[in-house]
Design a protein around this nucleic acid. Structure first.
Ligand code: SF4
Ligand code: SF4
Lengths: 150, 150
DNA sequence: CCGATTGTGGACTAAGTTGGTCCTGATTGC
DNA sequence: GCAATCAGGACCAACTTAGTCCACAATCGG
């Protein structure tokens, strides 16, 4: 169904949550807040740390915090961090790809589609999603600043 | 990796191929042309017929043909026909969705993303992809109208 | 210096989804 | 009647993903 992996979904939720809490947040804290089993959310956070989207502090009173404000993180980045590069089909650049690559007339020609999706996802930041996550009643009156984008 | 199912990929390839041949095309013919096992391509064609994207003729000398020109079919339609509706996450409208839907602050707030992707995919027709499928040597000299690239 | 707290990294297993195959009809033309 | 061709399932195997667990390293507080 062209849906992204559940872990990526969790990553977005966790990041938005991290954006709300101003200090550091611990794994169990986040897990409890969003209702996702703790080991799983830990796994996601680890991946996000590798990607540089969050910073971690070890030891007692440690935890995670965002490396950038939410407005500076696009969904595309999160997806790439968890799921790997965005490529709709197996036949991209030099990768192994599918076995019928030699006969297939479309081999390597999906680039327009890939770019379109990549653009669409790059233009949406987590801050945009957070806005959408505010109950509708608030969104009208809220004096949201300009928040965008790259 | 946010990739669409292989069957959907096949469907696009098969449709473009169908657009090339002006008469009807049979399952084995298409299968041979694009290097995909015949039973599988048959399965895809059946689904496309249900969706109304291709018309079928039974009996001897039967086969498939497009119901519309390639320029009138968007990728989004093909994806919906094979993979079902485009929804990045499980929490859309009233569907069952994920179990942590009650706690999750993002529940049902993915609409901006969904719409963005849907728009991006609706604006690309199979004809666009066919253009891209022309060998590069031709694309330069060809009097193609606009055709954006990379 | 010690122990509690918290992240790091990887291995492992179970479940779910998808891809692919096959078979039994129904329909059409020769 | 017979061959070609689509229709509609059932079915199984393989792969991918999600989720869990454990041993270890770092940091802090006392
Ligand atoms: S080579 Fe053809 S069948 Fe294979 S992934 Fe690319 S477009 Fe799809
Ligand atoms: S409810 Fe939250 S965790 Fe569940 S699918 Fe929706 S956004 Fe993801």
């Amino acid at each position: 169904m062209l849906r992204l992996s559940r872990l990526t979904d969790y990553a977005v939720v966790a990041l938005v949550r991290l954006g709300r809490s101003d200090g550091v947040a611990t794994t169990p804290g986040i897990a409890a807040a969003i209702g996702i089993p703790e080991p799983t959310v830990a796994k996601v956070l680890k991946a996000l740390t590798c990607a540089g989207l969050v910073l971690s502090t070890r030891g007692a009173h440690g935890g995670y915090r965002l490396s950038r404000p939410l407005a500076g993180i696009s969904i595309a980045e999160v997806i790439v961090a968890i799921d790997g590069p965005i490529a709709l089909t197996s036949c991209v650049d030099g990768a192994v790809g599918c076995e019928s690559q030699s006969l297939c007339p479309m081999a390597g020609r999906w680039d327009p589609v890939n770019s379109a999706i990549r653009d669409a996802l790059t233009n949406i930041t987590l801050a945009d999603m957070e806005d959408a996550a505010i109950p509708r009643a608030f969104r009208v009156a809220a004096p949201v600043p300009v928040n965008e984008e790259i």
